[in-house]
Design a protein around this nucleic acid. Structure first.
Lengths: 343, 343
DNA sequence: TTGTACGCGTTATCAG
DNA sequence: CTGATAACGCGTACAA
């Protein structure tokens, strides 16, 4: 029975063969449900992502599934649509399904609400906390002191010791972006897509600090939804400012926004990158196929998913996993950035 | 106990309240695992998609998850990467997890292999069968008789009576596309992205039949991988033919391909749509933000996912679900198509 | 090395 | 209307 099929050492070869033959004849399939009931732990992990329509999260999910599948785990999937209420509900469902671990990607809500304030009894790992802040944080991120911004970010995403985290280095990525533009000679740089969510706060902060470091004035920081439409609209507005205030480069919150930015810039008859450089963030698949192809910061999405699953697995094995990883981005040079006009 | 929490009719209000109070005090959570063991059916469905990175399947998945979640079902998710071998393996895993139903989207393999030739004991629904054909089918789809092509498609995707199907009307969609171009005055129309997979065979067939119906000559049909890179390369090749043979419009296999096609056309200094119309298929999110925005056929992806889940649910309830639905597309007019030059 | 109870947390059934 | 009890299919500990 169990021993034969599971490859227990203390079982005669002949017996094992007989059992296996019988199993095949009846096409016996071990029942994961019954197994989970007795072992008190299923081989399933819960994965909560904001939206499977978004290829960014789709690739994180692919990394998670890949690593899970290799370890013979299954993954239960749910979209949170960035709604804290749905996050809570789906976590509840995962718990009722007795998952062996939970991966929460792009979390919008507060960790305190997820487990009714108690320590969860399964490992939990956070991927790229996208916590939303009250809108009153937008002015702070623009002009508040860096200390104040960082304090706000930390306060809103402070986690109990029970959560591991795999997060992208948004601050450092934004700094890389600005340094690249500065090295090309840009001196008036704007940011499009500021929003009261964690990664945006950090990217704007990186934007500001790199500008400060280069001794350049702070450019315009405009808000917009994270979408081509949002970037398009916000850039339309931006471009109506007096000509001598016009930036020579625009840092977009992400690639989707950047694509809208480029379209708006083109709509004003301005060449990219001849007269205006545009830079994205994420390196989504389309980034390479916009016109012009987008210079951007690549997030190791699939790797982040794999790491999240790996973290769950090592927690399950009782190894004390690394608490928290901050992954660096990589600047991908394409053709949407170049020297400012007249250089 | 059970009766009180589940809202059984035959239980006194006072008793129910007492039970509920106790449940809350011990924060009791009914264990889905144990429940599944005794009821012999879990509230989980298996969902197999080719790739969660692809926003097309991501949206189908979103529809499935949405409908599942509304019906208090969970979804187990796996990527098949279009590998028949992986399809088989993941289906096996789903079965071992005792799922209540299985949704197979973009199936690449043959249904016969999925359940060892036996009837599955859970409802199964197919979404958009992407079955691969031997490469020798490419010439057939270009020049073979329509009957022969249809026969090939049917043979490779014939399903046992146990499978429901939700499939898109690829043939009709391609006909709509060509009719649109014909109505604009185009007479030389090419197809880029033919491949030996089911939807491609049907789209090429629709392309051919609509051309025939309009009394126009059959244009070039070139093969390419379904990606911007593929479309770009194939179009580069196409545009090197003698100028008087040049088409005035290109039908791309899908939007991703179309974006590569447009880039190649632009790279040859040809204006879209002034000198060349390009039309896509699917209406992915980026279609609206390519330059120029892509005219395309919209597939009701989310709705297809919802229908798949609805079909599973009605099978579970024992209702005899509709065997098979063929969903029509919708032409989305944007700016990548226009009259041919000189009209 | 192998056979055999027992119990995991539910639901269903049957007797009170 | 309610309380007790027998499965569900597996892993495991203990006896043979």
């Amino acid at each position: 029975m169990t021993r034969a099929l599971q490859g227990h050492p203390a079982v005669r070869d002949e017996t094992r063969r007989k059992v296996e033959a019988a199993a095949r004849r009846l096409d016996y399939r071990p029942d994961h449900i019954a197994r989970a009931l007795v072992t008190r732990t299923s081989s399933t992990v819960g994965m909560l992502i904001p939206s499977s329509v978004d290829s960014f999260w789709g690739e994180v999910a692919a990394g998670i599934e890949e690593a899970a599948s290799e370890a013979n785990y299954s993954v239960l999937f749910a979209n949170s649509h960035s709604q804290p209420e749905r996050e809570r509900r789906m976590i509840e469902v995962f718990l009722a399904q007795r998952v062996a671990g939970i991966i929460i990607a792009g979390a919008a809500g507060e960790s305190a609400s997820w487990f009714c304030g108690e320590e969860p009894d399964v490992p939990v790992v956070i991927v790229n906390w996208d916590a939303a802040f009250p809108a009153r944080f937008v002015p702070i991120v623009r002009t508040g002191s860096p200390q104040r911004v960082l304090k706000a970010v930390r306060a809103a995403t402070e986690t109990d010791a029970s959560f591991s985290q795999i997060v992208f280095d948004d601050l450092g990525g934004a700094q890389q972006v600005v340094r690249h533009l500065v090295s090309l000679g840009h001196e008036r740089i704007a940011f499009v897509g500021a929003e009261p969510i964690r990664p945006s706060l950090l990217r704007v902060l990186g934007f500001r600090s790199a500008l400060l470091e280069a001794g350049l004035p702070l450019g315009a920081i405009v808000s917009s939804p994270r979408s081509p439409e949002g970037g398009f609209q916000a850039t339309q507005d931006l471009l109506t400012s007096p000509p001598d205030d016009l930036p020579t480069a625009i840092v977009a919150y992400d690639d989707a926004t950047a694509i809208g930015v480029i379209r708006a810039v083109h709509a004003h008859g301005i060449d990219v990158p001849g007269a205006m450089s545009v830079i994205g963030f994420d390196d989504i698949e389309m980034a390479a196929f916009s016109e012009p192809p987008l210079t951007t910061i690549r997030q190791p999405r699939r790797e982040m998913g794999r790491m999240a699953m790996a973290s769950i697995l090592s927690s399950i094995r009782g190894e004390s996993a690394q608490r928290s990883s901050v992954l660096p981005g990589e600047l991908v040079l394409r053709r949407s950035t170049g020297p400012p006009p007249g250089r």
